[in-house]
Amino acid sequence: MPRLPAPLTLPPDAPTDAEVRRARRRRRRSESATAWAFVTPSVLVILGLGIMPVVWSLLLSFQADDLVTPSRWVGLQNYHALTKDPNFRQAVHNTLLYTALYVPLSMVFGLLLALALNRRIRLVGLYRTLIFVPFVISATAQGVLFSFILDPEFGAANSVLHALHLPAQGFLTDPGQALYVLVAISLWSGTGFCVVIYLAALQDVPPSLIEAARLDGAGRRHLLWHVVLPTLTPVNVFLVVWQVIESLQVFDLVYVTTKGGPLGSTTVIVYFIWEMAFQNFTAGYGAAAAYVLAVALLVIAAGTRVLRRRGPARLEGATR
């Protein structure tokens, strides 16, 4: 909540109600014009690059388009082809696997770390900073850095394994490992976000609640399970939605590290869309895949909204 401002100087004699009303009426006429002048830039950009492309994308998904020559209407063929495309199926599979691993792990680690960090001990500020810092680093920089660390020949990771007398690993070059390695990199950078959100929520747990439970003789474990964790429910809902949406849209990290390889083992949906539209120049096909993804995201967002409305605890404000 924003702090309320200190009172500014008001005019010496406060205007009467009638004066205020008259002033308002006078202004209302020119008001609409001013308001439109204020919102026009936002409206132009947001409609032009938000709403219009959504419609355009839908139309594109019914067409064959190579981004250069005029497109041709093909009806539902793109969608039909998608259902039969083994590459798309693999992309969906990879994305779901990534999401199923990344979302729960990042939240569990985030909560555990937040619980550990939510105390007044020395250096705790430093710990928080170190854990959160990877979150502000771009996926590109992360990808370049970890390609280096995990390089099978020159990388530091394999030399550590060597020193421990463990066999060298292929990491991102091994089709059986690459996706899991990507999840691990994302956990390194994304857990800090969950930590920060959980920490903020933990600090919002009303002290009176804890005090009351303590007076009733609740032990530490009871306090955690029956008082603290239940108050985190709205935050959990928010984080699930947020992290799922983020992981269904993962792209940058994949592009920088593996380019979908090896053997398609890390091709995720957005990578598939990008490849279809901008590498193979089958934009209509890419748009169809994008629509499938968007509908999935919409269902998730709408579903949790319904759930949240039914649930007793509601998160304030719009969290998408």
């Binding site: 690059l49 994308s57 594109l60 849209q249 994008a290 993804l293 968007a294």
Partner: peptide
């Protein structure tokens, strides 16, 4: 705000 970027990126490119 709820529209994913992937849905708009192809038309945005065309625009």
């Amino acid at each position: 705000m709820a529209i994913p970027f992937q849905l708009t990126m192809i038309p945005t490119f065309l625009v």
